[in-house]
């Protein structure tokens, strides 16, 4: 009975969050099969630790944290070091040429450094506030706010440049 209750709660959680976790995973690894693997692993680990979950309201941020850790664990060796002091101009200049093509916003998000992209996606996809993002990323709330602002500025600049480029071509 207890197992069934736990099981059905778990099923509801999988149905409620698998899509948004997939999208988050996709933006972390940018490979769709890998993103699905990450989601599968996240729920496997979540089930293994299900009994330790005290607060039902925390389940969403808990899943995001598991997924984030799982991604870091799998890609630790491949991970590109993030320069926390990177300036906005460097971000924009380092963007790929794809950022100026048709799917400009998607490419622009992709061109953002991970340190900017991650809090932005946690906010946009997960609907988390600054304090929750700070908890998930293990950084200060102030740093989250700065990164969110910089991410949006970078996106404006990147998408603006794409438009300018298109107009020049015409």
């Amino acid at each position: 009975m207890l197992f069934e209750g736990r099981q059905s709660k778990f099923e509801n959680v999988v149905r409620a969050f698998s899509a948004e976790l997939y999208r988050y995973a996709y933006w972390l690894c940018r490979e769709r099969f890998l993103a699905e693997d990450l989601v599968q692993e996240t729920f496997t680990r979540a089930w293994q630790s299900w009994e330790g979950l005290r607060d039902d309201k925390a389940v969403k941020s808990w899943l995001y944290t598991i997924l984030r850790n799982e991604h870091a664990r799998l890609f630790e060796k491949k991970r590109i070091e993030i320069d926390e002091t990177q300036e906005l101009d460097e971000v924009v200049d380092s963007g790929s040429m794809n950022a100026y093509e048709s799917f400009e916003m998607r490419d622009a998000i992709e061109a953002l450094p991970k340190s900017y992209r991650e809090p932005l996606l946690l906010q946009v996809l997960g609907g988390f506030n600054c304090s929750e993002i700070a908890g998930t990323m293990n950084i200060s709330e102030g740093a989250v706010m700065t990164r969110l602002t910089r991410a949006r500025l970078a996106l404006r600049k990147l998408t603006g440049q794409a438009t300018e480029r298109k107009e020049k071509v015409r």
């Binding site: 698998s18 997939y22 996709y26 496997t44």
Partner: peptide
């Protein structure tokens, strides 16, 4: 930004997760 971040999700993803589980 929101629209661009909403990449398509493979069909029956939740079913596959639950199946394995």
């Amino acid at each position: 930004i929101h629209d661009a971040a909403m990449v398509p999700v493979p069909e029956a993803l939740a079913d596959r997760v639950l199946l394995r589980h």
